[in-house]
Amino acid sequence: MEGGVGLNHVMTERKPLIEVNDLKTYYPIKKGIFSKTVGHVKAVDGVSFSIYPGETLGLVGESGCGKSTIGRTLIRLEQPTNGQIVFDGHDLTSTSNKNLVSMRKNFQIIFQDPYSSLNPKQRVKDILAEPLLVHHIVEPSQVSKRIDELMDMVGLPRQSKNRYAHEFSGGQRQRIGIARALSLNPKLIICDEPVSALDVSIQAQILNLLKDLQEQLDLTYLFIAHGLGAVKYISDRIAVMYLGEIVEIGNTKDVISNPKHPYTKALLNAYPIPNPHLRDKKRVFIQGDVPSPANPPQGCRFHTRCPIATQTCREGKPELEGYSHKAACFAVES
């Protein structure tokens, strides 16, 4: 799956598993004794993309750009303010809560912190049994067998299912989180920075596990991260996000080898170069902090930090344009 292998075939022969159209997720800012709404934090502001069956879309950007909010909104852990989410032909934005419960088994999430996402009062076997029983995936008499299968899938010894979460290492706890996500046989898994809290050597193990499981079970991933290393390794396509918007999206190889947006180039410049002969190459870094999503800049949102910004960038808003490799930048469009 690395580097977008087979992506063109996927996109031309199959329909998207999930389609996102002009998605917005705002959070109200309230002040005063009457909690009057005085503004909104625009965490996700008009995002559109598709994910195809069996592929991995990597979503990358700085902390606070809205990546995790997108993931949580896609599976309705957060309520969208506007826009449309179509999953496997069903409009999730207009689905009733009753129908949403029955559909949740089709999409699951792996959280960033494997410790806080697991109930410390439950043994592993209870953590894995709960979704199986709630969604009636297997008969009660078959729950123990299914738990053993899940432990095998993620590379944990079966006898450890009787232990509590705090008795495992960070990497082992994340494997438990992966097993829980797999328990319902989902079609889509949101990987919300699943390796950022782990040691580098353990990160590689978890990434390889996710790739192996995807191949075995025909899974579809939205892989969220703020570092390009993991995203480059596991993703077929990459979407680069800045301040609530996607500024570039395309095949992994194209985005990495030929970035179009200045922000994508800055992210790549921040990535360490392992080849010492290339380290003297001039590299341009962006300055300053990300503006507040409660009061984003007019025009191109990146113009306050962009080294090539012009007056046009300050006044007009570039659209995400292109064919298979799209970027929202006036310099690219011209």
Rank of each mutant, 00 (worst) to 15 (best):
169 S>V: 09
169 S>D: 05
169 S>L: 06
170 G>Y: 09
170 G>M: 11
173 R>C: 03
173 R>Q: 14
173 R>N: 01
174 Q>N: 11
174 Q>P: 06
175 R>E: 04
177 G>C: 13
178 I>W: 10
178 I>T: 06
179 A>I: 05
179 A>G: 02
180 R>A: 14
180 R>Q: 15
180 R>L: 12
180 R>C: 11
182 L>Q: 02
182 L>V: 04
182 L>A: 06
183 S>P: 00
183 S>G: 08
183 S>C: 11
183 S>M: 07
184 L>N: 02
185 N>C: 08
185 N>P: 00
185 N>Y: 12
185 N>K: 15
186 P>E: 06
186 P>M: 09
187 K>Y: 10
188 L>N: 08
189 I>Q: 03
190 I>T: 05
192 D>H: 10
193 E>T: 05
196 S>W: 08
198 L>I: 08
198 L>K: 00
198 L>M: 08
198 L>G: 01
200 V>I: 14
200 V>F: 07
201 S>Y: 13
202 I>T: 13
202 I>S: 05
202 I>L: 08
203 Q>Y: 07
204 A>N: 10
205 Q>P: 12
205 Q>A: 11
205 Q>G: 12
205 Q>S: 14
205 Q>E: 14
205 Q>Y: 12
206 I>Y: 09
207 L>N: 00
207 L>W: 04
208 N>H: 10
208 N>Q: 11
209 L>M: 02
210 L>Q: 04
210 L>H: 05
210 L>T: 05
210 L>W: 07
211 K>Y: 03
212 D>W: 01
212 D>Q: 15
213 L>Y: 01
214 Q>L: 02
214 Q>R: 15
214 Q>N: 04
215 E>N: 15
215 E>F: 05
215 E>R: 15
215 E>H: 14
215 E>I: 09
216 Q>G: 00
216 Q>W: 00
216 Q>P: 01
217 L>S: 03
217 L>R: 02
218 D>A: 15
219 L>D: 01
219 L>Q: 00
